[in-house]
Design a protein around this nucleic acid. Sequence first.
DNA 1: GAGCACTGC
Length: 851
Amino acid sequence: MPERVYTRFDDDDVPSSKPSKPSVTSDKPPAPSQGKKRKRGELQSNPAPEKKASKLLADHASCAKTQQNSGNINGVSRSGPPQQNGIPRNGPGRDDKNGHGHGHGQHGQHGHLSKKREILLPLRKALPIWPHAEEIKAGLRGSKDVMLLTGETGSGKSTQVPQFLLDEPWCKGCIAITQPRRVAAISLARRVAEEMGSLLGSLSPASKVGYSVRFDNSTSPNTRIKFLTEGMLLQEMLRDPWLNQYSAVIVDEVHERSVNVDLLLGFLRNLVTGDKKGRNGKPLKVVIMSATADIESLFKFFDEGFQKSLNTCQKAKGDHTQTNGANDSDSSWSGIASSEDENSKKALTKKSKPNGVGKSNGERSLKRKENPSISPEPIDLTSDFMYTCYIEGRQYPVKIMYLPEPTQDFVEAALKSIFQIHYKEPLPGDILVFLTGQDTVEALERLVNEYALGMDTNVPKLLALPLFAALPQSAQQRIFHPSPPKTRKIILSTNIAETSVTVPGVRYVIDSGKVKIKQFRNRLGLDSLLVKPVSQSAAIQRKGRAGREAPGVCYRLYTEKDFVGLEKRTVPEILRCDLSGSLLTMKARGVDDIFSFPFLDRPPREALEKALLQLLQLGALTETGGISEVGLQLAKLPLTPTLGRVIVEAAKPERDCLLEIIDIIACLSVENIFLNLITEEKKEAAEEARRELYRREGDHMTLLTTVQAYAKENSDRKSWAERHFISHRAMQNVMDIRKQLRQQCTHLKLLHPSKIPLKESPAAPSEAQTNAILHSLLRGFAANTARLMPDGSYRTMLGNQTVAIHPASVMFGRKVEAIVFSEFVFTNKSYARGVSGVQLGWVGDVLGSMG
DNA sequence: GAGCACTGC
């Protein structure tokens, strides 16, 4: 009875039980429409010659049913179809942060620069955000220090907002704008420099736009707009906690909710609602840019900060004057808000009850929650200190198709959908498939290629392109090449395409509805990497990838009911990661009481306590919970506290193996340097080629040997890496980090400059050195130790859990009395990765010394 | 016998 049929849910991503208007749903077949409707059997009219293919298509044909193509569109339609203003794809301000859209070099001459600026100006003026310039400027004047801004994809917010604010009277200093990713920071800076007719960063002392990311700082004395990664701004706050060089901080892509952005928001709230005494009276304006759905919680977050500050201020006043009514809220308003104009004064008097405004807006926005994808109606979330602004985006409508029945095998379901789309839909229109990981990507790639062989010759060709982070850069670049003639590209991707990489040419998205997600388990102290259902917001994000260039279709490989049952939001990273690094960051920036730090989402007390305990065990905190000398050193290292602690240990005179440890740590802080090989043939070849690098002491000494051998190779490192089946890109990263860590350690007086060899030392480490290295590792990873049990398994020293040595380890299959490991991950079972053999007595010593 | 995605003076 249940026909396998894609059903379409019109219009809204989050269906409510009673749709506000009639829509095509799963229980009623759509009314036939005159236009593009295709017959059911149409797929069969193109029978594939090969049996497999024809079987597949026949299967799918019976379930393929196209829905009427109503003019109803999903997403933002208010501003009409995009690109009507002659704006090219990837044109100005379209949030193209891959750096592929406009890779112009610098034009050396002033004339060129201003000409470029003139050319770009009309394109800027056509952006959806342009008409809001005055509103945005006005929104931050007077007592209003915080602006919440939602701008959908393609609104131009990342490029235009800093330029709007630049000439405001309060803006005497620099504007910082943060990005979650390096490429985004750099390509946005390049774009804005062009728009302003300025050279980029350090290219000229006069340049007004720069950027700052790890390993790459490009600013000038005259930089007014600086794009930086979130981590970079946090790092700057270590030196300059009041952010004195900035007049404004713009935090972009807040909805991605990285750990760093959460910390940043907490610090910024404290700054902007605090006494600002370190800023010598200079104002600091904060702009938060995020998805519409987050605005309410962000508003509450900052509003709470302002309320608290009012209460504190008022209490202080009460204490001083010894007079009335500490709870009389009205009397306190004028105390803190030194309003600069009549309007804000009026606003002050209007707001009689602290919660009044927020509440009514809360009710209104609840309505929106049911339909988050409709055209945003402005919600009037305003306070005396905040302004909320909505910018429509440029997004084409995307139809959604659901499976009528859940599927167990999303790879097979994706395969069927790919061929269904390919046979049904005319070119152009590439297909983007969201899968969980390298394994499913490669499995589907093989299947697509296999079935494509059986396609009729008059059917367009298929080109399957895998996309995942571990893929070499050159292979990743293939997705940007235009399709060959009469060919449809099928991009098989992990969630890298959700945020990090924008694939051009996509009109069809197939969403497996699954994602591999990392979760830190406090009690066990280990990371889990598990396949889980995506959240609704992630599903919406994936769907949106189909509507970047033309109207599109999103095939969800789950039912509409499944979608309704999904979590609304992806759990923010800060609630599912090890917090020790974050807490160290906070302690180093003067947050004494981490339990009162303003978290947008507060991690459970247990997680905070666990992290504090870990920092204590590393010696990063004093007995009283203050930060120690070691802790300050760790906070300055671009490493996790654990890895940092290994560095500090290795610098001790009795260990004296810092350079070696730096090489190892550099490897541990990049992705796997050893390439994953698929065919048996290559695996064997790699085994053979790497034999000279393998060390029986374990993975850490193997990494050291590898770095030393690579560094020693002066002629052609790339071919050396290829010969040894080692990722050259990862090794370049390792060398960058090695350099940075050496510098850092010199600054921290852990390393004397005279110790850095001018030439790469070829000497293999002695046994004494090896022991020193392993002891240093043990100091940081004391909790990651296990002993061999009589039955041949390993059990952790703390917690007595079973761990298996990961198959990729050189220690795999070996039995030694004890092991130390730098990574502990749960996938199918608990695995130790990065394993070295150690003496049981050493482990006892280090555990004993920690108490 | 196995590898989501980012990021740091």
